[in-house]
Simulated scan of single mutants.
Amino acid sequence: MEDDLDYVLDDQIGFLLRLASQRHSVIFQKNVVGKLTATQFATLMRISEHGEVSQNHLGRLAAMDVATIKGVVDRLKAKGLVQTRANPRDKRRMSISLSDAGHQIIGDLKRAGHEISALTLAPLSADESQTLVSLLKKIS
C-alpha cells in the first residue's frame, strides 16, 4: 500500500542537520589544535569564558550530562590542560580551571575555532551565515 504523504528525505530537517554536522565534524577534525574532540574543545572554551567552575556547572554550560563532563574533564586533566581542586566552600564539589598549558593553547584554539566556523559556513554568503546561526540558536 502506497502512502499518500510525500516524504522526501533530502528535504527533512533532521537529515539535513545530520549531513551538515558530519561535514562540520570532518572540518573540525582537520583543523582543531591539539587533536581535541569537539566536547573537549567546548569544555576548554567554557572554562576560558567563565574561569574556575564546578564540574556540575561546567556540564550545564557545555550542554553535557554529569557522566559525560566527568569523562571529558578527566581526559583534559590527563592531557595537562585543566586542573581540579576541591571547592573551598563545598569539599564535595570539584572546581575546574585551565592549567598553565591550557591557558597557553586557548588563543590557538580560538583562532582554529574561527577558521573551522568559516570553513563550515564557506558555501554561504555572510548574510546567509548570520541567518543560519541565528536560526540554529532559535531552535537550540
Rank of each mutant, 00 (worst) to 15 (best):
A67S: 11
E115Y: 10
N56L: 14
L135N: 03
D127C: 02
T84H: 08
E2Y: 08
F41M: 08
T68N: 07
L119K: 15
I116T: 11
S125L: 03
R85M: 13
Q55N: 15
N87T: 15
A67F: 10
A63D: 14
L119D: 10
L9E: 12
D11C: 03
L135I: 09
A62C: 07
V133S: 03
R75I: 09
R18T: 07
Q29I: 05
R18E: 14
R75E: 08
D4G: 09
K35N: 13
L98K: 00
L5V: 14
A42V: 10
L136M: 08
A86R: 13
Q29V: 08
G113A: 10
A63L: 06
A126L: 02
P123R: 03
K79Y: 13
S95H: 04
D127W: 04
L132H: 01
I69D: 01
L81M: 10
Q29F: 10
H114G: 05
I96R: 02
S125K: 02
M1H: 10
K30W: 06
D11N: 08
I96P: 03
T120M: 05
D100Y: 06
L81N: 03
G71Y: 14
D3G: 11
R89T: 06
T43Q: 02
K30Y: 02
H50P: 01
T37Q: 08
L119W: 10
E49H: 14
V32T: 12
R93F: 15
Q55R: 15
K70S: 15
I139C: 13
S125G: 05
R18V: 06
L44D: 02
T120A: 12
I96T: 14
L36R: 02
S48I: 00
D10F: 07
K30F: 00
K35L: 13
E115Q: 07
A122K: 12
D65N: 05
D90S: 15
R75Y: 12
A38F: 07
V53D: 01
H114V: 04
Q83W: 04
Q55L: 10
E115K: 08
A122S: 12
V72G: 00
A126V: 03
